[in-house]
Design a protein around this nucleic acid. Structure first.
Length: 462
RNA sequence: GGCUGGGUGGCAGAGUGGCUAUGCAGCGGCCUGCAAAGCCGUGGACGGCGGUUCGAUUCCGCCCUCAGCCUCCA
């Protein structure tokens, strides 16, 4: 039985889908004006893992992840670049898809965009105005009247009075209340705009997610996710908009992943302390990145450092080293390990605990290999790959993973290494240890490690 | 100032009212020409002070400390 920490109630709850056997999940995706950084990678991987685990658990999942392709920052960046907006967003949507694919993130079932959901957005604003939850201001903007929505603050645990007291931004005269937020922004000259009952303009950020999620999944659906930084105000506002407009409960389970930190500080665009995913993937294999993310619980802070990435790399090396040279059997389950794997995952997606079970499997597999029980080894390797797949790991070819280190480009190529290994073996045959060790040192200097096993000599890149 | 969530062995990171997490690193052994990898064994921990309890790292209170939100951010 799957239990999920519901950020709305702040406790773990049994997952009960609205429709038995089905699960609808909406996750706030990227605003596309720059490359994904490691924080984005975490959202992509965490919710991909959740979608995979739900499917593995037998649910028919509809996973929706949106793209924000119109907003202030996009307009600003396009102007700075002297680039058309759709050219800019098109470029970064493509980049984001490349990055996701590299990380083994499966495409969502639906990927709606703000600019192609304008009718739904305008409809929802219209409803909110009609119902008295929103009002057009003198300047052509439309605002949400926060005082009209009783539950405002229920997700983030905030109270309106406290928010007002803490108001740091200069009070905007066109709003009735400083906490009111914009649903529709009147177009300024030279800005992209859409026609609406309130004149030319474009949507505020929060409304698009309310419109797209309910359009794709219905007024009331199971899971809504995103980074913890979206809890307030974004998701709080989504609740106000959606529940105001539909009159029914919006989302049953709210899931937020923790931040990626760097030197004990949040990695973020505004602090400028971020690494883009493509930078990192030049140094580390994608599955190393994925392991790094899944090795800690999704709600914990994730400390980004070279040391931690190196540690993730060593862990992946242990997996693939065990799988190397074994023909994995086609199995449909994880054998005796599956129960403990599920127990961990059922407890609010405890991927760290699940990985510990996979390491136990590695141990058994290595023992089977050492004992030459190849049938047993094949079986265990199959189980390992089977459970790894639930986490989106161990999908590479073991031989390729071990041979493809950082130094794969620029250093010796595979053929050259094979020649040296052959020569070293000839020296070994002649018991010329001086020569064989010299060749080994030469390879070591290039980041190549040779290993003499029962089945011959193999090598890997560090 | 208001509100959240943390503080676990050398590092990373799960978990539990009494019973081995796991990975890396360390130490001893096996294997190896020597290594590497692997296997076996092993040391080492629960921020501080109180309380509840037969017993707390695990529950409660206070304190210290870190991160985050209250403004755009995944």
């Amino acid at each position: 039985m799957l239990r999920i920490f519901n950020n709305l109630t702040k406790q773990k709850e049994l997952f009960k889908p609205i429709e038995p056997g089905k699960a609808g999940m909406y996750v706030c995706g990227m605003t596309v004006y720059d490359y994904c950084h490691v924080g984005h990678a975490r959202v992509l991987v965490v919710f991909d893992m959740i979608a995979r685990y739900l499917r593995y658990s037998g649910y028919q999942v509809t996973y929706v992840r949106n793209i924000t392709d119109i907003d202030d920052k996009i307009i600003k960046r396009a102007n700075e670049n002297g680039e058309a907006i759709d050219a800019l967003t098109g470029r970064f949507i493509e980049a984001m898809h490349e990055d996701s694919a590299a990380l083994g993130v499966l495409p969502p079932d639906q990927e709606p965009r703000a600019t192609t959901s304008m009718d739904q957005i305008i409809d929802m604003i219209k409803t909110l105005v009609d119902k008295g939850y929103a009002y057009p201001a003198d300047n052509g903007d439309v605002y949400y009247d926060v005082s009209k929505f009783d539950g405002y603050g229920k997700l983030s645990g905030k109270k309106l009075e406290e928010l007002r007291a803490g108001e740091r931004v200069a009070v905007d005269k066109v709003k009735d209340d400083p906490m009111d937020f914009v649903l529709w922004k009147a177009a300024k000259p030279d800005e992209p705009s859409w026609e609406s009952p309130w004149g030319q303009g474009r949507p505020g950020w929060h409304i698009e997610c309310s419109a797209m999620s309910t359009d794709c999944l219905g007024d009331h659906f199971d899971i809504h996710g995103g980074g913890l930084d979206l809890q307030f105000p974004h998701h709080e506002n989504e609740i106000a908009q959606s529940e105001g407009a539909t009159g029914c409960k919006f989302v049953n389970y709210w899931i937020h992943n923790g931040f990626v930190q760097i030197k004990e500080e949040k990695m973020s665009k505004s602090l400028g302390n971020f690494f883009t995913l493509r930078e990192v993937l030049k140094e580390y294999a994608p599955e190393v990145m994925r392991y790094f993310i899944l090795a800690s619980h999704y709600r914990s802070p994730l400390n980004y450092s070279d040391q931690n990435l190196d540690s993730a790399k060593a862990a992946m090396g242990r997996f693939y080293n065990a799988l190397r040279g074994v023909e994995a059997a086609e199995v449909s389950d994880g054998g005796e390990y599956e129960l403990r794997f599920r127990k961990a995952m059922d407890d609010d997606f405890n991927t760290a605990g699940a990985l510990a079970v996979l390491f136990e499997l590695v141990n058994a597999l290595n023992t089977a290999k050492a004992e030459k029980s190849s049938e047993q080894a094949a079986q265990l390797a199959g189980q390992l790959k089977c459970l790894g797949a639930v986490l989106g790991l161990l999908q590479d070819d073991a031989e390729a993973f071990m041979k493809g280190g950082v130094s794969a480009d620029g250093g010796l190529d595979d053929a050259a290494i094979d020649v040296l290994v052959l020569r070293r073996n000839e020296a070994k045959q002649e018991k010329n240890w001086t020569e064989s060790d010299r060749i080994r040192d030469e390879l070591q200097a290039q980041g190549i490690v040779v290993e003499d096993g029962a089945g011959g000599t193999i090598w890997r890149r560090e």
